[in-house]
Amino acid sequence: MQRKHFLIGLTTVSIAFVTCTYFYLFQNHRNIAKETPTITMEASDLLRSFQDFPNHEVLNKTVQVSGLISDIEANAITLNKSVYCVFSEMPSNLKLEETITIKGRCVGYDELFEQVQMDQCIQINR
């Protein structure tokens, strides 16, 4: 009887262990679109804060920025010539000089173009 209990216990523990390991090893990527932004600010302010502290605390965090569209590329836009935003899915009907708010992951500061880079962006509003 005791042996049976032991076997049941062992099986349960092993199944739990295997399941946990599986979910740890094959965990999903972050879903930036569903994350609440850590910080909300103007595009030019985000750039300025990066130029002051290169290893900024918002690195890899979900950030919401707003600004004027200063450049439009195939799947990216630039806000206020300060933040380069790469979209997972490029919104249609974007126009230059239009004010926009977007949410995305802050990837870092690109010193060649002197811009902050964000990826996995989604449009919040216009």
Binding site: Y24, Q27, V107, L112
Partner: peptide, 18 residues
């Protein structure tokens, strides 16, 4: 010629590996 890649911009298939 100059080129810059942000390390956090490298995407892996598996989140844990990244």
């Amino acid at each position: 010629f100059a080129s810059l890649a942000l390390i956090k911009g490298f995407r892996f298939k598996r989140a844990l590996m990244e």
